[in-house]
């Protein structure tokens, strides 16, 4: 084998080695970002960032199980090239249903307080204000009946307990 040939073999294999390395590094970041986005952005409000093979997830989800599921699907998008996943997803506080329809509350409060003749109620802006008096043994039933209407607040601060 001539020296020239030996050199060209070296050069070729060197090229191949470089090509392999560059090929591997090319999978990273922008390609990884696309891969992960492909699987996780079906959930609105989730964004993906990739740096040096480390995936960072951010945004808001509605439950802890959804938060974990998104992390797992991100890892699975390219488990070979993703070094790790930083899960910065935040679980949003649940939206609790509150009835602030005064007309609706007023008519329901009438039913709820029918058996409490010594109690008066007013409803304004979703707040039920209870005045008058009630026996100690019945105050819990009264509060349960009013809380069951899901108002914004039940104000019994001036109610007299007998």
């Amino acid at each position: 084998m001539s020296l020239k040939n030996v050199i060209s073999v070296f050069v070729l294999s060197g090229c191949l080695a470089v090509a392999t390395v560059s090929c591997k590094s090319k999978v990273s970041d922008s390609d990884l970002k696309a891969k992960v986005e492909n699987v996780v952005t079906t959930t609105p409000g989730v964004s993906v960032d990739v740096k040096d093979g480390v995936v960072t997830l951010s945004g808001t989800v509605s439950s802890e199980s959804e938060r974990e599921a998104i992390e797992n699907s991100a890892k699975a998008a390219d488990s070979k090239h993703i070094k790790s996943v930083v899960n910065n997803l935040v679980v949003a506080a649940p939206q609790i249903e509150i009835n602030s329809n005064d007309a609706d509350l007023t008519s329901k409060v009438v039913d709820a307080t029918k058996d409490f003749p010594t109690v008066q109620t007013t409803v304004k802006d979703g707040v039920i204000t209870v005045t008058g008096s009630v026996e100690q043994s019945r105050v819990q039933v009264l509060k349960q009946s009013l809380d069951a209407l899901s108002p914004k607040r039940v104000d019994m601060s001036t109610l007299v307990i007998k």
Binding site: Q136, V139, Q144, D147, S150, P151, R153, M156, L159
Partner: peptide, 20 residues
């Protein structure tokens, strides 16, 4: 739950919880 609530806020007079 209602027993515990009543212990923490006797007679529910604070009006800072709505439990349904």
């Amino acid at each position: 739950l209602w027993d515990v609530y009543n212990q923490l806020d006797p007679n529910f007079l604070s009006g800072d919880v709505v439990m349904n």
